[in-house]
Design a protein around this nucleic acid. Sequence first.
DNA 1: GAAAAAACGGAAAGAGTCCCTCCGTATTGG
DNA 2: CCAATACGGAGGGACTCTTTCCGTTTTTTC
Lengths: 215, 215
Amino acid sequence: MTQPKPPRKDAARNLRRVMDAAAELFAERGLDATLEGVARRAGVGVATVYRKFPDKEALVEALFVERLSRLTEIAEECLAVPDSWEALARYMELICAEQAGDRGFGDVLISGAFGIERIVRARDSLLPLAIEVLGRAQRDGHARADLAATDLPLLIQAVGSIAAFTRDAATPVWRRHLAVVLDGMRAPGATPLDGPAFTPQEIDAATQRLYPAKR
Amino acid sequence: MTQPKPPRKDAARNLRRVMDAAAELFAERGLDATLEGVARRAGVGVATVYRKFPDKEALVEALFVERLSRLTEIAEECLAVPDSWEALARYMELICAEQAGDRGFGDVLISGAFGIERIVRARDSLLPLAIEVLGRAQRDGHARADLAATDLPLLIQAVGSIAAFTRDAATPVWRRHLAVVLDGMRAPGATPLDGPAFTPQEIDAATQRLYPAKR
DNA sequence: GAAAAAACGGAAAGAGTCCCTCCGTATTGG
DNA sequence: CCAATACGGAGGGACTCTTTCCGTTTTTTC
């Protein structure tokens, strides 16, 4: 019933060091950061990293599954905001901020992180919430009617790409561009959005192409 | 005075094949495409590629310098459009379209393509034109006053990133998001853009970090 | 406080990638 | 037909990154 074994003291300390270092390094450099880099920053050897996590995917999973559920929380909190436009704007802003602060997290969202099951599922569970947040703002006449829910992740990704590109600058300039996007999402839309929006399946397909295609 | 030597027939044919293949492959896969891939698509050996161009950079330069000056043309044509908003909208759209149709070109714009002199210079000559296009629309009260010229390349990059991400889909969905952005650029802006815009130097710094940092 | 158990570090194996060169063979043009 | 020119593709060289191996050190247990 009780834990079979209490872990050794140095092992516990190193696990924390590794996770902290990985969180930092992935935040700065994205998922491309190497495990050797993680080890160096943690002040341990690579083997120690591998003793804690069987491979890189496991480390990524350990770090980001929790953070993804944070996004779900954000969405749910937004649904509780009385003003439906306020809710939509906050939803966009908070998600962009998460990405802007952590390049690795942005990679996870866009790529599905090597297709890790739990991560992909967690990410996919976000769309229904987006539908609700957007739908409410549309029903109230705050958000333009021709926006589709699938436009949200794409617009978020667009702002996120600015955040990634300008990451090392002093100013979080992406907020300016998010403001532009938000104004563009307001009703009434001056320029009609022509052409069909993406289906959720098309979004999935795009993320999946990302991994096999790249590295 | 005349060309010292007319080139051999097969050499001429292969030069064209290589350039065509490279244009295609870079368009599809970006600057990461390998020269072996180019050779394969051209139906020649790698050595032939290297006989035509001393190295990869030279090939990239040959392909994209011309295309960059096309962007200058676009900007100048836009300056000739009477309606200043129309001009700005067209400017944004045409540049996005160029990127959307050619992933390599997007890479060139964002990364400066290995820092190749002529390419960087050509790209930098674009900003003054953007200033004019934007300034005119602002003076006429069409574009929101709190936009800075440096916001344009960043917004273009944002839409471009959607185009890159959704490249393989049937629908050019990025047009929807460009429309959103354009509406957000209209005056009056509902959400104020707070925080300073980027300086041109900050943009340069960001592009330069891109290459050394990555590969 | 010593021996057993657990964990450690860093070198290096292994698997890729990609750029570019070499050289024996083929094509071209006079 | 032969000299000049160009060709193909194997492979050298230089990375990079993940993962394993093993002799050494630290911790725990008695």
